[in-house]
Amino acid sequence: MSDVLAGLGAWFHAVFVEQFDVWIAIGFLAQAMFSARFLIQWIASERAGRSVVPVAFWFFSIAGGAILFAYALYRQDPVFIAGQGAGLLIYARNLWLIFRERRAALAETG
């Protein structure tokens, strides 16, 4: 059992300590921003008493996704690059649709 724990400790040290650099810090920051969008969505839904997706969700999606995309490019991870790249297009499209709808609503009332 102590060999397993020692091996696990060595693995954690190698993964989280030895290879730590500014890009790992950027990756963690990006992941935190990307994850924060779910907290924002949850809080907005609780306040409304129904499921809602606030505009801030899409801004956090773009911010976190863009930084994660840069991180993936730096790491040269094709799976991560493809996933984040496609996500960025979807997030931008959602914001464009939201702003187009708001612009049309303003034109009708103005």
Rank of each mutant, 00 (worst) to 15 (best):
M1W: 12
S2Q: 13
S2C: 06
S2W: 12
D3L: 11
D3H: 11
V4T: 15
L5G: 09
L8G: 12
W11T: 08
F12Y: 14
A14E: 15
A14I: 11
F16W: 11
F16T: 07
V17Y: 06
V17H: 04
E18T: 09
E18I: 03
E18N: 08
F20Y: 14
D21R: 00
D21E: 11
W23E: 02
I24D: 03
I24G: 02
A25C: 08
Q31T: 14
Q31C: 07
M33R: 03
F34K: 00
A36K: 01
R37N: 08
F38S: 05
F38V: 08
L39V: 15
L39T: 11
Q41S: 12
A44K: 02
E46L: 13
A48H: 03
A48C: 07
S51L: 15
V53G: 04
P54Y: 06
V55M: 09
F57L: 05
F60R: 01
I62L: 13
A63D: 03
G64W: 00
G64Q: 03
L68M: 06
F69P: 03
A70W: 04
A72E: 00
A72F: 03
A72D: 02
L73K: 00
L73N: 00
L73S: 00
Y74K: 01
Y74M: 01
Y74P: 00
Y74W: 09
R75L: 07
Q76H: 10
Q76I: 08
D77M: 01
V79H: 03
V79L: 13
F80W: 08
I81Q: 04
I81W: 06
I81H: 06
G83D: 07
G83F: 07
Q84M: 10
Q84A: 03
G85Y: 09
A86M: 11
G87P: 06
G87Y: 13
G87R: 07
L88P: 07
L88Q: 09
Y91G: 12
A92F: 13
R93L: 14
N94F: 10
L97M: 14
F99P: 11
F99V: 13
F99C: 12
R100Y: 10
R103G: 12
A105I: 00
A105G: 06
L106I: 11
A107L: 12
A107K: 07
E108C: 09
E108I: 10
E108P: 04
E108Q: 14
T109E: 09
G110K: 03
G110W: 05
